[in-house]
Design a binder for these strands. Structure first.
Lengths: 398, 398
DNA sequence: GAACTTTTGTCAGGTTGGTTAACGTAAGTT
DNA sequence: AACTTACGTTAACCAACCTGACAAAAGTTC
């Protein structure tokens, strides 16, 4: 049954007020008052509470209309700190950020190819502590977020069978970090984190957005109504290991004919091996240099992924498609993908469709994860809970 | 910007109480009270209001636990009436129903193949009035809902370019019916209406559901969080006219290589013409009789549609897929579709996936449209507006 | 700089919408 | 008949919010 989650906080609680401010951008007290529907007296009280929690701040003034200028208020998304980590097949990147994704410190680790959680988690714990101490923000840490290249069981806080990382199947991830840092830990798939990053970077539009990530592997994330659509078993958007017709290419997941077996960075590296390519970075470099064989291979991969994205576009009818990952942002790949989508998708889904490379480069996942933390920590429910624990205002001792 | 629509009704308003009752099934007063978080006194008042509006009713009793039995309450979804109409390429079916989709009267009209709104709308108006008068429910009519085989601009209440029905492009549909019947008019795509019908028939589960309709044409609807996902231009799920690789078949929409050009009822009728088939009904009959050529054609169509549905399943990761339409429910078609989905979709999206024929047969669209009306007319906002117009309780004149 | 305007904070009293507490009745079981 | 549970009603109460009045801050205009 579909249960209308009764957060049970009044529609004018401090948390809701912050929600309106978050959704409708910087506002003056009057504008905020109108939108929330509170009297001036009560709004003063709400803002006082939010200010004491460090959740709102002044961001300037409106032009005077003949008298005192109105102060413009905005959500303070730089006061609290998140520890975010982007875990890949062969690397882990950590960063200390604020809730809008500003990076204060980052740290790259190379990982062995077939690493296991037993090895990696302690490394990440140490690296996280280090990184926090390198900034002066450790005391404002409010949550951690982690992206992994695989599915996640959000209920249990556990990874689920990333086909190429068998050691990671069913390993608890939330728990060790939550214990070590004493804050909530959010987990997200890497493609979803990237999609969210681009979504947040666009200013949280009302429209749907599809993020496609083509790096070593292939994945996609679908943002609908401002949230990742996860689906029944948390695998929504996992397009890498669906099969395409007419391919019998063996895939690293053990099956044959997957999209990733023909169009991923791993596949390109394999296919170009005879031309001297050894790593994904080699592929990227050669495409950048305009080497014919590499460019052709990237374009063919773009076409293949494009056929899947065309179906995604037809089904979801999003406003934005953002393509990221080392391969995804290569112009020949993106061009072929774009052409294929335009040729194959439903005509009316192509109107207003905007296919662009991911805007965020290396920090894409960080912005997504930081935004995820922001949505969690600045949600009406969380804020109202903070308000409940706030010591009462001291009545100006004389 | 994503605006958290502030319905501005308190979380304990009568409308919200009804919402809880609707979502969580039949409940006793005590259970309802717990879930909503109201005192007994206030709950009595809420229920009094809802009872006076005819929105709740008793549905039995719990077992006694040693004293008086608790009365079980449920939403009264049979007291109000909807006029629903399912408009097809060559027919129109109207029905008078209650808000759970019980059909009290129905009426089938054959329409000329290239009909225009100018001809059809007056016919529907007359037929609707007739049908209402044939029941004794005209006085409880609260809304009308209409499904059409094409896209809809919900803002303007207008159809948008159904490729095979050029005369219907941009024609206002909401207005004439709203004027004639004096009630709100809801519009929905036919595949969406079918998907909603199956969704409601399952008891509004929490999971996502994909409805696929393969009749004369091909379409699909995606239900996420209890609502149709429409997308940016309202064409989400319109899989019929996306192109598939390796086909150059001319489509009735004017392009080449569409799914519908190879796998729709229209395409099957065309392809089997040399064997004596003339209409869609001929195809269905011959498949039923087990005629080899017809069965093979249906299976091939199922395989083709299956490749698209496999991608849908991978992207949306739904719990349910329901396949309807005259072709869609044919066993050879459905079996081929199922096999193709199981072969091509992402493995983990297949766990818990339930692919079945549409459960509702002829009345599928009616149930979907009636449910749409219910969601609209029993929504907290609508109910609270009704409450505001309710005359105050008369204080028992002596 | 004086007069005016607009924004913002605060105090005080009044209204509203809910609460708890107590009582009474209805409808079961033992 | 005695007990138990469900349900309705009344009355006193209370917290949250409102309106109205006042005042200070911070601009503009002349």
């Amino acid at each position: 049954m579909l249960v209308t989650k009764s957060t049970q906080t009044s529609p004018t609680s401090p948390g809701r007020v912050l929600g309106v401010l978050r959704a409708e951008g910087p506002l003056t007290r009057q504008e905020l008052q109108e939108r929330v529907g509170l009297s001036r007296v009560t709004m003063v009280e709400r803002l006082d509470v939010l200010r004491r929690l460090g959740l709102v701040r002044a961001s300037g003034h409106r032009e005077s209309s003949g008298g005192r200028r109105a102060e413009v208020l905005e959500v303070n998304d730089t006061g609290r700190t998140a520890l975010v980590a982007d875990l890949g097949q062969s690397h882990a990147t950590l960063a200390v950020t604020d809730l809008r994704g500003t990076v204060f410190a980052r740290d790259d680790h190379r990982l062995p190819v077939r690493h296991s959680p037993q090895e990696v988690v302690p490394v990440l714990l140490d690296a996280g502590r280090d990184l926090l101490n390198r900034t002066d923000r450790a005391d404002t840490l409010c949550a951690m977020a982690l992206s992994v290249p695989g599915q996640i069981d959000h209920e249990r806080g556990v990874t689920v069978a990333p086909p190429t990382m068998p050691d990671w199947n069913g390993k608890p991830l939330r728990e060790p970090f939550a214990e070590a840092f004493g804050v909530p830990v959010l987990l997200e798939n890497d493609a979803n984190a990237l999609a969210l990053g681009d979504y947040y970077a666009m200013g949280r539009p009302d429209s749907a957005l599809i993020g496609v990530k083509v790096g070593t592997g292939i994945g996609a994330g679908v943002v609908i109504s401002g949230r990742i659509h996860r689906g029944e078993s948390g695998s929504a958007g996992e397009i890498g290991h669906m099969r395409i017709e007419g391919s019998e290419q063996r895939c690293s997941c053990g099956r044959r004919g997957c999209v990733a077996a023909s169009a991923s960075g791993q596949a390109l590296t394999r296919d170009l091996r005879s031309t001297g390519v050894r790593t994904l970075a080699d592929v990227v470099r050669r495409v950048g240099e305009g080497r014919g064989d590499a460019v052709r291979a990237a374009a063919e991969a773009g076409r293949l992924v494009g056929t899947v994205v065309a179906t995604m576009v037809t089904i979801v009818n999003p406003r934005y498609v953002r393509v990221g990952g080392a391969i995804g942002v290569l112009p020949p790949f993106l061009e072929a993908l774009r052409r294929t989508v335009e040729a194959n998708a439903h005509a009316s889904a192509l109107r207003n469709l905007d296919i662009e490379p991911s805007q965020l480069g290396e920090n894409g996942a960080f912005v997504g994860l930081a935004g995820l933390v922001a949505d969690e920590m600045l949600s009406p429910a969380t804020v109202d809970a903070m308000v409940a624990n706030l010591p009462p205002a001291q009545p100006e001792r004389t």
